[in-house]
Design a protein around this nucleic acid. Sequence first.
DNA 1: TAAAATATAGCAAAAAACTGCAATTAGAGA
DNA 2: TCTCTAATTGCAGTTTTTTGCTATATTTTA
Lengths: 249, 249
Amino acid sequence: MLKEERQRVIVNEVRIHSRVSLSDLSDKLDVSIDTARRDVKELDALGTLKKVHGGAVSLGFALHNYKEQNIYLHEKKSRIAEKAVSLIPNRSVILISGGTTNLEMARVLPSKLKITVFTPSLPIAMQLILHPNAEVIFIGGKLSKEAKITTGGKAIYDISQVKVDIGFIGTGYIDIQNGLTEFDWDVVQMKKAMIAASKKVIVPTISEKLNTSQCYKTCDLTEVDTLITELEPNHPKLKGFREFPIKLL
Amino acid sequence: MLKEERQRVIVNEVRIHSRVSLSDLSDKLDVSIDTARRDVKELDALGTLKKVHGGAVSLGFALHNYKEQNIYLHEKKSRIAEKAVSLIPNRSVILISGGTTNLEMARVLPSKLKITVFTPSLPIAMQLILHPNAEVIFIGGKLSKEAKITTGGKAIYDISQVKVDIGFIGTGYIDIQNGLTEFDWDVVQMKKAMIAASKKVIVPTISEKLNTSQCYKTCDLTEVDTLITELEPNHPKLKGFREFPIKLL
DNA sequence: TAAAATATAGCAAAAAACTGCAATTAGAGA
DNA sequence: TCTCTAATTGCAGTTTTTTGCTATATTTTA
């Protein structure tokens, strides 16, 4: 097989699937992984595709690759995300609201996990496109430019039409007295609908948000099944929350 | 066997199989590898085919330098995008399908323009978030990971519920006989719905796509109001299209 | 943080390309 | 037909390219 043929196959593969792994290529083309790597490297140099760790992606994909800016918070969010994905059974149907912690969860979703995900969040949908086994259903509606999620009557109605196993509801503020709160009214309406659509409500949040509140209320803590933070469940900061019938993780 | 004869055979072989190896040629033509190599070298110099390590490939098959190509294509798309935005009146309601040309249009949308945009395309929605005066309504549904747009019954139904002033419908392939075609069936269904929802249908496309077609048909050219390419409207390549009642831009 | 996967660099074998050269052949002109 | 010249062809030796492998980093994952 000529080198050009191989590279053509790689280009096609990337065009069709948007991404390809070197080991797949090595199998498919019947060459060593080194050769596949070298081919991909050349194609990258030509600007045909983008080489990434473990394979290659189409250029379109590389565009929306956001980098985490805040390393400090990112570590916490990773830890939360790890805990969160451990709660997702295979073949379950979940709902993910917006927010960077949830985005982190979408990023670390194990690729073997077969799931159906409903989400109104643009960045999360973008991230989930990369997941090979996730069926992604986007909740349509009017886009809120700040929150980067859809909102409005249509979106709320669409959410009311589904019932999912788990809802991962991010929150801007969380407090023992006031429960989950936001400062964007539209977002609150969406979250209310999402909570109503979820058999189980999981709230992942960094500890900085504990004991903060805003004017619009999403729900009381009583509606939350599990609260995930980067802290150990018996950490002093979580003291007041242990009095609620909430699982802490 | 004469040299010319041999070379004709080589050209033919390349035309049929897109590729040929020198050892194959050496066998088939019953000459030494060196002679085959020399023949291929001459044909390469003539521009008939492309000589590569170990053989030859057809020119169409050869991978060109996409970096240059991309800059080149990007320029065309910008030109198309400029033309396209000039057709959007202030305070109008438009629909934008996916595709890189449409994405370019979203990028150059003047920030003073007040518009309402419906779209099922994730990258385009992502881009429009940056626009200060665009109200963006995302068509929800099942995400197609290749096309990065939503598809499926729900999305099609939602589109059927709106009527917009202008629909900007990108296309993978366009042809005088077959009209607009794609190779993804789901995408075709979406585009059909989008066309039905648009009072006016504008198709922006680079000239490379003219006179190409695929198996699934979106619509005939008769349903298109305006075709925008990077070429002047009276360019020879657009010859056949002038016979339709289509505005060319 | 440890283990697993992937990347990089250097090396050697194999394949292919290039070079120069001699043998052969085609074809023009006598 | 014959001869001469230039083109063509195959071959041998050398150089370059390609490829897979190993050892060593680096990145990712759990």
